[in-house]
Design a protein around this nucleic acid. Structure first.
Length: 581
RNA sequence: GCCAUAGUGGCACAGUGGUAGCGCGUUUCAUUGGUAAUGAAAAGGUCGGGAGUUCGAUUCUCCUUUAUGGCACCA
């Protein structure tokens, strides 16, 4: 019997009324085994302490401990006073193994005089209202509310230190040492394998492989769109444009504006460092001032409100280099931007309409995993409390039963916002859609309309986008679809594979029939097996059509869509498309 | 911007203090094929950029740039 067999029988804690307790905190209850989610959590939490213990042994008084929680696949410890590199991992891991081998029993006590609390821990203690509990293992202890294993020896060695990074915690620079851990080596290996698989579907890799988009050292943070990627880009814009029909006026505003404008809007003061400034002008970091100017040039009356302007506007923001992330975070991006100039009374119905619009678009793209955040008034803000109350209420009322998360204090300085987020390949949430209420900009730029009494009034501006950054959206969408885009925006809708060169003419004939679609014939001198492999792995067309001499003789073709193959007559292609796609 | 790691032919990777290798792709030739890689040959890099150490550096050191992971930031 090996160690893992014993372990799976090991009770590491108890459930009592749905809460998790370790064996120090409870003596009975519904048992928790190490291979359950809660058991793993207890084990990972103990590993955090073992990691800290190892650091304590190696770096002694130099290292100071902040926090060390378990996470979804492992855990981390945040420490200060030392700077680590991945080269230190071997040494630390070895020390951790040693601590496990020593099979040190943990002790669970209350904080006492004999515990000398280190500098970082002091920062936590003030926040703890309950009794402060301490877990001790040999010469190491940690303030902790648990739960933990009863001894270090129970902890499986199936863990791995993975990264070290810097993180600011309570105004202090710390090192975050992260590990992954599972109860068995097999599960650890499986996790690592899955991780590698996911890396293959990173949009940056897929973009290169499928010739969609790429990047260059000569323009860091800016994307190069290739023919195929640009098709996706344009098709997504078309999708939005169809929704705009009769509701929005699409426009195109200048790409640079006088610095005076940015000084007037407040961007100059707040975001100067992040703007591309050219002499007395600057490239626009956002489209709203342009739209506001346009509104004022038309001076609509109250009868024309809500006045909706949209633009697929390219903006440039000089972001810090460390934050750039492929298409997901670029220095130049295209916002499917729109601004609604309206009265306070119109806010809520406009927002309801926007939520429905966003839902329609996301549904059409088959993006089901979304979440909505509502960000409320921040500390630094302008406008009256009354306006904030009204704006926040409008956002919440417009949700009409949809689930949402409130993020207190995360709104913009000029108004609260709704963020629609989607999840990428690595389960990270990204804000795409956004709806923001703005009381500020119209005032700043003297934007006004004439009300029914002939008096000039300042409208409320709603900033809104469905994709947000089209670049970011495509980055995430590439990962969601694993590079196989739906028919309407797939760069290659039909890929025709002739069995041999003898069938190229027949393949071209079919391509002619499909002239109105994006269609490609693979004329390479490869075997059909190779052509199919390429089609599935590095072209990822929506439909694959295979033709050989047999098909030519019968005037048929083999067509594959959604992994379903069928042989149809050449004259029935349109019918097939109509019925299946 | 901060911490860590990395940068080798179009792509993806080996490797070494004595001026570089594999695979994919490309080109050519043969093959004319029946459902996830047909065979052979050839071309293609001076190892991100700069400086230093050394008789000699792609390899060691420093600076710089770019990328990746994390943090900060994200109008």
């Amino acid at each position: 019997m090996n160690k893992t067999d014993i372990l799976s029988d090991e009770i590491v804690g108890y459930f009592i009324n749905g809460r998790v307790f370790d064996k120090f905190q409870a003596k009975e209850g519904y048992p928790i085994y190490i291979d359950s989610n809660e058991g793993l959590m207890i084990m990972r939490h103990t590993l955090c302490h073992i990691l800290a213990h190892a650091l304590f042994r190696i770096y002694k008084d130099k290292v100071s401990f902040a926090i060390g929680p378990a996470t979804e696949n492992g855990g981390y410890y945040l420490v200060s006073g030392i700077i680590l590199s991945t080269y230190d991992f071997a040494n630390i891991t070895q020390e951790m193994h040693k601590i496990i081998d020593e099979n040190i029993n943990l002790k669970y006590t209350e904080l006492s005089e004999k515990h000398i609390i280190d500098r970082m821990k002091q920062k936590i203690i003030n926040d703890i209202k309950d009794t402060i509990t301490v877990y001790e293992q040999g010469d190491f202890f940690d303030i902790c509310k648990g739960p933990h294993l009863t001894s270090t020896g129970i902890t499986p060695k199936s863990f791995k230190l993975v990264t070290v990074s810097e993180e600011i915690w309570k105004n202090e620079k710390c090192q975050k040492i992260r590990f992954i851990a599972f109860d068995t080596e097999e599960k650890l290996a499986k996790y690592e394998e899955e991780y590698r698989q996911k890396e293959q579907n990173d949009h940056r890799k897929l973009g290169k492989k499928l010739n969609l988009f790429t990047f260059s050292d000569m323009a860091p943070g800016f994307a190069f769109w290739q023919k195929k990627g640009l098709i996706i880009f344009n098709k997504l814009i078309e999708l939005i444009q169809k929704k705009y029909k009769n509701i929005y006026q699409e426009c195109k505003t200048p790409i640079v504006f006088k610095n005076d404008l940015w000084k007037c809007t407040g961007h100059w003061d707040k975001y100067y460092e992040n703007m591309f400034v050219l002499d007395d002008m600057a490239i626009k970091p956002m489209n709203c001032p342009g739209h506001a100017l346009l509104f004022n040039m038309n001076k609509p009356s109250y009868k024309e409100l809500p006045y909706r302007i949209a633009e697929f506007g390219n903006v440039c923001r000089k972001e810090d280099q460390g934050g750039v992330q492929g298409l997901k975070r670029t220095l130049s991006f295209t916002i499917d931007d729109g601004h609604i100039f309206c009265t306070e009374n119109q806010i809520q119905s406009e927002i309801e309409g926007l939520l429905i619009l966003a839902e329609e678009v996301y549904q059409e793209l088959n993006i089901t995993n979304t979440r909505i955040k509502i960000a409320t008034r921040p500390e630094q803000r302008i406008g009256t409390e009354e306006q904030w109350n009204l704006a926040e209420k409008a956002l919440i009322d417009a949700m009409k039963g949809r689930p949402y998360i409130i993020v207190e204090g995360d709104g913009a300085f000029y108004g609260p916002k709704i963020e629609i987020q989607i999840q990428d390949n690595m389960s990270k949430w990204w804000t795409c859609g956004t709806i923001q209420i703005d009381y500020f900009l119209a005032q700043r730029l003297d934007v006004s309309y004439m009300d029914d009494k002939g008096i000039e009034q300042t409208p409320v501006i709603i900033h809104r986008a469905i994709f947000g950054s089209i670049e970011r959206f495509i980055g995430i969408y590439t990962e969601i679809t694993k590079g196989k885009f739906p028919f309407f925006c797939n760069p290659i809708q039909f890929l025709i594979l002739p069995i041999s060169e003898k069938s190229i003419n027949y393949a071209n004939k079919i391509a002619n029939i499909l002239d109105q679609y994006r269609c490609e014939v693979n004329t390479k001198n490869d075997t059909i097996g190779k052509k199919i492999k390429d089609a599935k792995e590095s072209i990822k067309s929506s439909v694959i059509i295979i033709v050989g001499q047999k098909e030519e003789a019968n005037q048929t073709l083999e067509i594959e869509y959604n992994n379903e193959k069928q042989v149809i007559k050449i004259e029935n292609i349109e019918q097939y498309i109509h019925e299946h796609i």
